[in-house]
C-alpha cells in the first residue's frame, strides 16, 4: 500500500460540512444486462463532505459514482443531485453535469487540443462564456493545479501526473459544486501520485464536495470525513476514517483492510 499522502499537511480546520444536501440516493439499483451491479444503494452526501469509496475491483464503486452524473443509467430508485432528479430528461442531465465535475483514471484529456483549450472548451461551449474570460478562468485553475507554464502544450507532451492535474483544472473551470474522482491516481507512477493528491487536498480545503474512489488510504485518513466500503454491488460499511480503519465492523471489511494494509 503506497501512502503518498503521508507527508502532506492538511489544515483540518478548513474542512467544513454544511447541512445542505448535495446528493441523495434512494434505494437505487442498476443492472448491466442481467448482471446486478448495484444493489439497493442509499446514500446522502452533504455539501462539503469528502467521501472516499473503496472496495475490491468489480464491487461497483466506479459504477456508483458514474451514476451520479449519469454516465451510467440506473434502472430503479432515485438519485437527486442538488435537488434535481436524474431521469431520462436530458435537461436535468445537462443541469446535473454542469454542477458535477469528474476526473477519470485515464485522464481522458482531449489530445487534439492544447492544455488551455481543454480547460476553456466547456466554459465556452456549454456556459457560453466569452473566450477571453474563459481563458482567464482556465489560467487561474491551471495555476491552482500548479502548471500554468504548460498551457500551450498538448496533453501528449505532459507526464501522467501533469495530465491528471490538467484534467482536474478542466473540471474546475466549469465551477462545479461537486467533484467525482474515479481512481484518479491508479494510473500514475508513485512520484506523481503525490502531486495529484496535493491538488485534491487543496480542493477539499477550499470546501469542495468530493466523492473519491481511491485506494490511497493515507488520503482517506487525512481528508475524508467518511469512508464507504463496497463489495458485490452493496455498501457494506461506512464510517468515519479513524473508526473505519481501526475498528472495522464487518468481517469483509476486515479482510479487505488486512489485504491492502499488510504491505
Amino acid at each position: 500500500m503506497s501512502d503518498s499522502a503521508a507527508d502532506i499537511d492538511v489544515d483540518q480546520s478548513k474542512l467544513k460540512i454544511s447541512d445542505e444536501i448535495a446528493i441523495q440516493i434512494n434505494a437505487m439499483h442498476k443492472w448491466y444486462g442481467s448482471f446486478h451491479v448495484l444493489k439497493d444503494i442509499n446514500l446522502t452526501v452533504n455539501q462539503g463532505e469528502r467521501i472516499v469509496v473503496c472496495g475490491p475491483s468489480g464491487s461497483g464503486k466506479s459504477t456508483l459514482i458514474r451514476c451520479i452524473n449519469r454516465l451510467e443509467e440506473h434502472q430503479q430508485g432515485q438519485i437527486f443531485v442538488d435537488n434535481v432528479e436524474l431521469t431520462n430528461d436530458l435537461k436535468n442531465i445537462d443541469t446535473v453535469r454542469r454542477e458535477v465535475g469528474m476526473v477519470f483514471q485515464h485522464f481522458n484529456l482531449f489530445p487534439h487540443l492544447t492544455v488551455l483549450e481543454n480547460c476553456t472548451l466547456a466554459p465556452i461551449w456549454v456556459r457560453k462564456m466569452p473566450k477571453a474570460e474563459a481563458e482567464e478562468i482556465g489560467m487561474r485553475f491551471l495555476e491552482t493545479v500548479r502548471i500554468p507554464e504548460q498551457a500551450d502544450k498538448f496533453p501528449g507532451q505532459l507526464s501522467g501526473g501533469q495530465q491528471q492535474r490538467v484534467a482536474i483544472a478542466r473540471s474546475l473551470c466549469m465551477n462545479p459544486r461537486i467533484m467525482l474522482f474515479d481512481e484518479p491516481t491508479s494510473a500514475l507512477d508513485p512520484e506523481m501520485i503525490k502531486e495529484v493528491l496535493e491538488v485534491m487536498i487543496q480542493l477539499a480545503e477550499d470546501g469542495m464536495t468530493m466523492i473519491c474512489v481511491t485506494h490511497e488510504m493515507g488520503f482517506a485518513r487525512k481528508v475524508a470525513n467518511r469512508v464507504i466500503f463496497m463489495d458485490q454491488g452493496e455498501i457494506v460499511e461506512q464510517n468515519e476514517p479513524e473508526e473505519f480503519f481501526n475498528n472495522p465492523k464487518s468481517d469483509r471489511t476486515q479482510l479487505f483492510l488486512s489485504q491492502i494494509l499488510s504491505h
Partner: peptide, 26 residues
C-alpha cells in the same frame, strides 16, 4: 477510446457539440 465520449459528456457537452468539437476532429 470511450473515455473521450465520457469526458465530453461529463463536461456537459451535448451530442452535436461533442461530435463537432471532440470526436470528429480526432
Amino acid at each position: 477510446p470511450k473515455g473521450q465520449y465520457e469526458a465530453a459528456n461529463a463536461l456537459g457537452l451535448g451530442y452535436w457539440k461533442m461530435m463537432r468539437l471532440i470526436i470528429l476532429p480526432q
